[in-house]
Amino acid sequence: MSTFLQYLIYGLQLGSVYALLALGYTMVYGIVGMINFAHGDFLMIGALGTFFIAKLFTSFNIDGTYPMLIVAVIIIIAMLGTGAIGVGVEAIAYRPLRNKPRMIALITAVGVSMFLENFPRALPFIGPNPRSFPTLFKTVRYSFLGASITSTQIIMISLAVVVMVGLYLLVNKSKIGAQMRAVSMDKDAAALMGINVNRVISITFFIGGALAAVAGICYASVYPQVEVYMGSWLGTKSFIAAVLGGIGDIRGAMLGGFIMGISEIFATAVNSTFGYAVGFIILIVILLVKPAGIMGKLTKEKV
């Protein structure tokens, strides 16, 4: 029982990273109707950015950790920065292609992803070397029904849930949320109603980037190694999580992320070589049974 609980905690820990990233995929898909393959790299930018921002604040570093206030400042700067990069990527690479066939935007997204991975690698002060991530959260270990859980894990899991609830409320209850839903239904009609479509899409990318930064910080806090390629695999898996839950649906992204994380951990427990492939198997099975994903609604696409 305690082992089961322990694995569940590991699964939630991994799942919360997938979920936070999947939220970004799903938001962009839901509102703009494109798959932003560069989203995993926003996570890398968030984590690497945090690494450099934390370096700027080293004078506040006492005994290897930072005071809570400084940690909050670092995280907020990283979120704003990554969000801004998200907005920039959209404005430069995606906006000019918005009314072109979808395939063009998709290929551009792959290109942006390669650029975001390789450009920092070419910069001399970043480079390809993996770096060790600074300790932002002090790790306190709690025992819980025979399983151990750390403060970092609690922060990660609860942060993912809080963010999801917040996002759900934002989209469904706020004014900007109503605008987002309107743009997602029909861009042209929304524009006719006086909604600034560009602004709504920029905000969507900003939120996606900021969430990816949070995911990156969480991920790097538990697995303290950051490098320019860290986002590519995580991005792929989170994309699967988003499709699994029904791409375009916020609750679905969350559910998909946790399903991916937990199933990966439990599959590893059964057979460690099998764990990595399990996400793909689940994806195939679910798409066979329910092609729109768990929460997704099947819509006929007009060609």
Binding site: T3, Q6, Y7, Y10, T268, S272, T273, G275, Y276
Partner: peptide, 21 residues
């Protein structure tokens, strides 16, 4: 003895928990 496949794997908690047992 526990294994994992590939250098993309960064989470070894499950295998290590089993070894520790």
């Amino acid at each position: 003895s526990e294994e994992y496949s590939g250098s993309d794997v960064k989470d070894y908690n499950v295998q290590l928990t089993k070894l520790a047992a």
